[in-house]
Nucleic acid binder design. Sequence first.
DNA 1: TACTTTTGCTCACAGTGTTATTTTTTATTA
DNA 2: TAATAAAAAATAACACTGTGAGCAAAAGTA
Lengths: 199, 199
Amino acid sequence: MGILERKQRQMEETRNTILEQSWQIVEEEGWQALSIRKIAEAIEYSTPVVYKHFESKDAIIEEFTKQGFGLLAEKLKNAKIQHDQPDQQLIAISHAYWNFAFNHAKHYQIMFGLGIPTCEMIHGIDEMKKVNDLMLSSIEYAIESGKNLDADSHLKLRTFWSILHGLVAIEMLSARNCADTALQTLDDAMEGFIKALTT
Amino acid sequence: MGILERKQRQMEETRNTILEQSWQIVEEEGWQALSIRKIAEAIEYSTPVVYKHFESKDAIIEEFTKQGFGLLAEKLKNAKIQHDQPDQQLIAISHAYWNFAFNHAKHYQIMFGLGIPTCEMIHGIDEMKKVNDLMLSSIEYAIESGKNLDADSHLKLRTFWSILHGLVAIEMLSARNCADTALQTLDDAMEGFIKALTT
DNA sequence: TACTTTTGCTCACAGTGTTATTTTTTATTA
DNA sequence: TAATAAAAAATAACACTGTGAGCAAAAGTA
């Protein structure tokens, strides 16, 4: 009675095909272009068949999210175990993280729900420049007043903005409204930033 | 011949109504729920009328993006001018930024294309914990090896992750593939972080 | 071969952004 | 004021989307 096993196998096979074809669509046309109908066409089945394997479109995307985090964990681990010293480990991890984000940009995008909507338009918005200038002048002022006069203000601006956005994004995504620890994190990060900025 | 002026005025009026009603929909039901048809119903006109005022749905969203950055600039400025010292300015700016992000979460979300797709599901993914643990152990190791033994490793973990994600997100959104400065920013931020972690 | 189960398909519903066509309203001229 | 030209708005349609109900065909079982 290998008949059940065969069915199981076929089931898993089409499941994998769905995932593979979905990924191909995403890689070629982006997340917006991923649709059940397109998947169905790619696997050469009708649309309801897709629902036999995945409860919804979101379930498919969730699968990729898991894949992404799994892959990230792997990359970080590989980077980490090549160093003994903790600071070197952290730097290696940060580089591995960075590389993952851009080598697997499509994965990273769903993992953190990023850049789907208005990716091009953010560039070239006048109002953004105001924010930039505002931050920049304070940073330049801080550099002048400190002991690290060689610091690159534009570099520091990017760092400043990144830290802020990173905190906000992570906090919003984790969605556990624990305002206390969040603000603590903010001040902690700021302390480190300002210290590095002025000494 | 005030007839043209009146038309101009009416044009602007409905344009504002579109923006107002759109915003109400977004506030009440989120960005996903914003549709041209819903807007049309809200302003009590047919759908093509909306296209007389905005070229596309994206154009409407872009309007809110501009609004958002304008408002952010205002808030940051107000925070800044209340302090003379640069480090205090930066902290005030960071707090103002933080408050803006959460007091105007809907604005912030489109400004940085955040959280639209899979906001709830990110919580509770097993693979994510692996990444967490990996980073955490290195951070704990660094704290042990350093001089700042009282550092909160979980707090530092959040900071670490936030810095990384912030850098990536900002880099991806700005989309100017200037890999050199980006990596510089990364190392700069890491240097500051590690310094604060161990001293 | 006859029956049952499973599998996959067609069709439909309720949406979406966007646009061509037609109708209605408004303004201008005779 | 009535006829005509122009502008405005509505209807309807196109090409999509996710999702689900109901039916036909194939596969397995007796």
